[in-house]
């Protein structure tokens, strides 16, 4: 890309790092911004900066939030006896959209992948166990993508939570193996929450 002048090349490189953005799209976005007014460009830049500055992780559930604890953890309307465990923050929105789930969440920020050296140490599992010391917790719903790392993680959580006398369930197998929660349609997800099952 040496035929771009440096400021253009720099932005193309940055856009190119984003998921789903190839070199062509990166160039298109860059030239689009070049035509934009200064104000509009500044608004975009500030939105990006404030994303990093004002957003952090909830100290209870580790979802992204602009105030701590997050609004779900603080809500009186929600059922504080149920915790739904997800892999990443973006898995929460689809579950919220179904309107079926009224409990709390816990974001692990990853799944167990032994060959990559990602184990319990690298995830928010200690923090989950700390939350479960609260005797008012009745159920943990494991809503992790049904792929191999997800399955390892789900089985491990079941293994360590079951002795605490807390009900552990997982989403019904309406979700095909290898599917991703984030992209599942609402119907499937609805059924998966309603039909959640005990671990055998």
């Amino acid at each position: 890309m040496s035929f771009f002048i440096e400021p253009v090349a720099r932005l193309v490189r940055e856009f190119g790092k984003l998921p789903g953005i190839g070199p062509k799209s990166a160039q298109r976005l860059t030239y689009y911004l070049l035509r934009e007014t200064d104000e509009e460009a500044r608004a975009l830049a500030e939105a990006i900066l404030s994303l990093k500055k004002e957003i952090g992780l909830c100290s209870i559930c580790f979802n992204v939030t602009d105030h701590d604890p997050c609004s779900i953890c603080q809500s009186k309307e929600r059922n504080h006896a149920t915790i739904c465990v997800v892999e990443k923050p973006s898995d929460i929105a689809p579950l919220e959209r179904t309107g079926k789930y009224k409990g709390l969440y816990h974001v692990l920020h990853g799944t167990i992948n032994p060959a990559q050296g990602i184990t319990t140490e690298n995830l928010r599992i200690k923090e989950l166990l700390a939350r479960l010391q609260d005797s008012s917790i009745e159920e943990v719903i494991i809503a992790i993508n049904p792929n191999m790392e997800g399955e390892t993680t789900a089985l491990y959580l079941q293994h360590i939570i079951a002795p605490l006398n807390i009900r552990v369930t997982h989403l019904a197998r309406g979700l095909p193996f290898g599917a991703e929660l984030e992209y599942a349609d609402d119907m499937t997800l609805n059924q998966a929450i309603e039909g959640r099952q005990e671990f055998k």
Partner: peptide
Amino acid sequence: GACRPGSKLGGNVEPL
């Protein structure tokens, strides 16, 4: 397309 929901290929090419 293996990560698309409902992808038949996705389930057929999981590890193990």
